[in-house]
Amino acid sequence: MPTEVLDFYRAELEHSGANQEAAHRLGYELRRRLDAAARELSQALADRDNCTVIWGTSGTEIFNLLADSPAVAGKRVLTSRLEHPALLAALRRSAAEVKFAPCGKDGRLQMPEDSGAELAAFHQVQSELGIRQELRPLPGVPLFVDAIQAAGKLPLPPEFDLALLWFAATATLAESAHRSRHVDDGRGSPETALLLTLAFAATRRRAAREATLRRISELNAAARELLAGLPLPGGARSFCTVPAEAASPFILHLTLPGVQSGVVVRMLSEEDVMVAAGSACASETRTPSAALTALGFSREQAYSGLRISFGFDTSPEDVKKMAEALKRVLKNY
């Protein structure tokens, strides 16, 4: 994390200790600063400053808030089997009916024109495979966008009604979710210093977004050249699961047929290389990847996926180190 952001957070921990709900002057000043931070965050992530911001503590919390809102409760919802398990669980709990849109072999959604849905809920970037969707609203159907893997990295879709923007502390929602302060809805109040720091960091990141996107895209392309076609035990070869043109450059997903990727993850960690066997929330489960099985992979193949993430500070040297370590691990597998 940049030193500038850490220094800002430390300062806020010292000076933002008031209760934002308090009636005294310090509470009022903190509410004013949070309102300003919400506008800054909206501008940084959505390129407009008029999104309503609902502060929360996690993506799962916001999914459940959405599910309990009039936008979902008792409604017919169109989604996909590639969505985050926490979102699917929330929709199944609250919606009257959940329908699934099909997807192509590259994971791109095939949106039906007449679904009968009252809300569409889809990811912008799939959390495990990195599939990047070109989302468009269906006529007369509000669109909820899970943008957790895209916020601060990619532009949001030009049109959306509801968008989960950031895994750590916020979501922007339209008319169906209009509260910007904590109310008695069963949620706790997030740490105010963290929220103010989030807006500061997002604004800083927005200024460098285009340059960062170009640099990470180049690193992703280099990694694809190094990692596709590696020889595997049993005679198969590795391949990139999602074509570059259909994927976020911040995620590279490899399939290693015949190899247990959970074992590879642990072997790579001994080489000081940290990757994942799937999305972080499901990386230690004993079930095969739901995302890979949704794309038609066999149960055996669905255990062989390797998710590689690119951070804002990933370097060409990091990519080379990772590729060399993976080759050694596969040789010794």
Rank of each mutant, 00 (worst) to 15 (best):
E225R: 02
N220C: 14
L230G: 09
G235T: 12
A211N: 08
R214A: 13
A207E: 14
N220L: 04
G235D: 09
R205M: 07
N220G: 07
E210H: 13
R205N: 11
R209N: 08
L232H: 09
L227G: 00
R205W: 07
A228Y: 03
A208S: 11
L227K: 10
E218T: 11
R224D: 00
A208D: 12
L213K: 01
R206Y: 01
G234S: 11
R214P: 01
L230N: 08
G229K: 11
A211P: 00
L219D: 06
T203L: 06
A207T: 11
T203C: 13
A221K: 10
T203F: 00
T212V: 02
L232F: 06
S217C: 05
A223P: 02
E225M: 00
A228L: 05
R204P: 00
E225H: 03
R204V: 01
T203R: 15
L232Q: 05
N220H: 15
A223G: 00
A221S: 13
E225N: 02
A223N: 01
L213H: 15
A221P: 04
R214Y: 03
G234C: 11
A222C: 05
R209C: 09
E218I: 05
R204I: 03
R209E: 05
L230S: 06
L226A: 14
S217D: 03
S217K: 06
L232A: 02
N220F: 04
R206I: 00
R206G: 02
L226P: 00
A221V: 04
T212L: 12
A228M: 04
A221N: 08
R204G: 10
P231I: 11
L227H: 06
S217F: 03
A211F: 07
S217Q: 06
A207C: 04
T212R: 13
R204K: 15
R215C: 02
E225K: 02
